[in-house]
Each structure stands twice: as C-alpha cells, then as structure tokens.
Amino acid sequence: MDKHKKHLLWSAAAFTLGLVSMPSASQSLSVEEGLAIDRLPEIRAVLRDTLEQGRDLIVPSGSTKLAQDWPNWTNWGNG
C-alpha cells in the first residue's frame, strides 16, 4: 500500500461514542447534586469573559512566567 496515501485506522470507539456528542455534565448519572462540575457551563462563560478582558484569574493559578513558558511539566508518575 502506498504509504503516503495510506490512512491510519483509528479505533471506532473514540470517535463514534460520546466524543462527538459530549454529554453535558448535568446528564451524567454519576454526579450527585451540588457538585461544582454541574455548573461548568456557567463557570466556562465567566472564565472566558475574564480571559478575554485580560483580567487575572481569581484563584492561584500558577500563571507565572515559568508556568506559561513550560506548560507541560511532568504531571505523570511518582516523583
């Protein structure tokens, strides 16, 4: 098969189940009442607004020069 034309086969699961039509948090059966995650759409709107206005985020965000410059610290593994 021509390598340049060959398509990579991807598992059906990732792109046909759930990922294309993501459930809203409030539809999830695993969520109890009163969890912050249930209000994610509202939170998202506020965060986007804050970012667009160039205002500081309201909780300690680690948004120092170092963190911005290298967003991908080793967030895996034990130490």
């Binding site: 759930g18 695993s30 969520v31 249930d38």
Partner: peptide, 12 residues
C-alpha cells in the same frame, strides 16, 4: 480509545 470513549460517555 475505548477507555477514553467510556470516560466521555459516563464521567462528568
């Protein structure tokens, strides 16, 4: 991928 899909479907 199927773990990813299950997470997307089931987890808030």
């Amino acid at each position: 991928a199927s773990g990813l899909a299950a997470c997307a479907r089931d987890c808030a």
